[in-house]
Design a binder for these strands. Structure first.
Lengths: 249, 249
DNA sequence: GGGCGGGATTAACCAAGGTTAATGCGTCGG
DNA sequence: CCGACGCATTAACCTTGGTTAATCCCGCCC
């Protein structure tokens, strides 16, 4: 079963930079971070618990991370997803308490950089500082867009948006009809990302499939069949969204 | 009708720094920004439309700003609220498109600083850079916390959270029983902030009032009657939340 | 091959909130 | 003093999405 169109590699693919979402000089700042402690984690492991005293900054080399928070009843919200090349500063205003919980959606490798070193790096490497700045800015754009849909959108609109966002980011800008890509999350996790229950996530995906907007080759392997329809539901314009949420556009 | 407890001044109060939420050296960086173009706007005016080409950075001197986005059907979500002393960078990853719409909730005065100048200022004034950094960090903490409730919380939990957040920020840390404060927003706007309809916002507030959690002296003038209950509904610990969402704690 | 386990799918039911619309209430301008 | 307007309040009704639970599917291990 071959695809007629270009097909992205699996995000679990061992080649670290294959899906370099925010690839800013693939691999990103390898020289700067060469002597940094490099950490690997298996899919499903939790890197840091909410409220725990935080280490500092992370630069993700490969794999996907979910940044999440939970309510007392156990319901989780994935606040953002970090892709290869992405930066993550899991620290709140007080500079020491982490407000979030970080989960590896796939096997990951990343650099964990103590606050002091990070500050020094930023001063020494303006390019790093610029990239980090752009990353923060993109993250805020994405979060704003998702907040809008979380608060005032329908389930359809958030799901469509999430599909577009993750496609745009994971393929580095490709969002076109027939494009096949993989989201390395379960429907439960995608639901947590969209503020929906797993059941309703499933319902929505199936409806998209029946309406020929989406093709589901295998669990979480999507092909966009009707991009105009998807973009309309998501209320986005793909090229514009790309500029806003993918850093170093 | 005098209050038995300390009562904050009206946020529309002419004294510019009276409610200095994130007051970092009241007034914030007046020296740095002395020669900057200072702008005033009336309550209700819109400073910038979504998608418009953006100017750059803002430093808010007095009044409240709402940062919002809207869906095609006109439904709005207030993504964040900026208080006196707060910084605002309404620019997305591409460094030129604004992703949001900014509305003055009260009469405001602020400095609008072009990107270039801002960059220079940051280089020249490490204290400003630190403050700006802290402000961004705090904004992200707040947004994460609100996203969690938007996605997975009940109406009660978001409203309670918003009440705590705005009290903490507008009074500079005070969140205690009997404390009276004013939120210069209509219920419609507070609803847009919480992802709720104005009607449900009203219902919720009234329920809090009936349950003796809140007292509503006049529209949007609240007194917290039962802080433990409110904090429990919001699922927060006031001092901890303060550290996380109020910069320069 | 058979049992197991995790995720996906589906249906039936339920409840939290949205919508609409009527009403109240206070302020402001004439 | 009146009317208009903007906001708050309340009730009635209905939609969307959550919950529960049964079933399925597929890969894996024995």
């Amino acid at each position: 079963m071959n695809h007629q169109r270009p097909c992205r590699e699996d995000a679990r693919d061992p080649a670290p930079w294959s899906n370099g979402a925010q690839a800013i000089g693939v691999p990103p700042f390898a020289d700067v971070l060469a002597d940094t402690h490099r950490v690997m984690r298996r899919a499903g492991s939790t890197l840091k618990l909410e409220g725990e005293v935080a280490g500092g900054h992370y630069v993700l080399f490969s794999g996907w991370l979910a940044v999440a928070k939970s309510m007392l009843d156990g319901h989780r919200q994935i606040v953002d997803v970090v892709l290869p090349g992405g930066f993550l500063d899991a620290v709140s205003a007080d500079l020491c308490t982490s407000v979030v919980e970080i989960e590896a959606l796939t096997d990951v490798s990343y650099a964990a950089i103590p606050r002091q070193d990070w500050q020094r790096l930023l001063r020494e490497r303006p390019d790093l500082a610029r990239a980090s700045d752009g990353s923060v800015r993109a993250a805020m754009s994405r979060m704003s867009a998702r907040m809008l849909r979380l608060g005032k959108g329908s389930a359809d609109s958030i799901v469509a948006f999430a599909l577009c966002e993750l496609c745009l980011r994971s393929t580095g800008g490709g969002l076109s009809e027939g494009w096949a890509y993989h989201i390395p999350m379960t429907q439960q996790q995608l639901g947590d990302f969209c503020g929906l229950s797993a059941v309703h996530m499933c319902r929505t995906l199936q409806r998209f499939r029946r309406d020929d907007i989406l093709e589901l080759r295998a669990p979480m392997r999507m092909v966009i069949r009707d991009l105009p329809a998807l973009a309309a539901i998501a209320e986005i314009d793909p090229p514009v969204l790309r500029q806003q949420i993918v850093p170093a556009a």
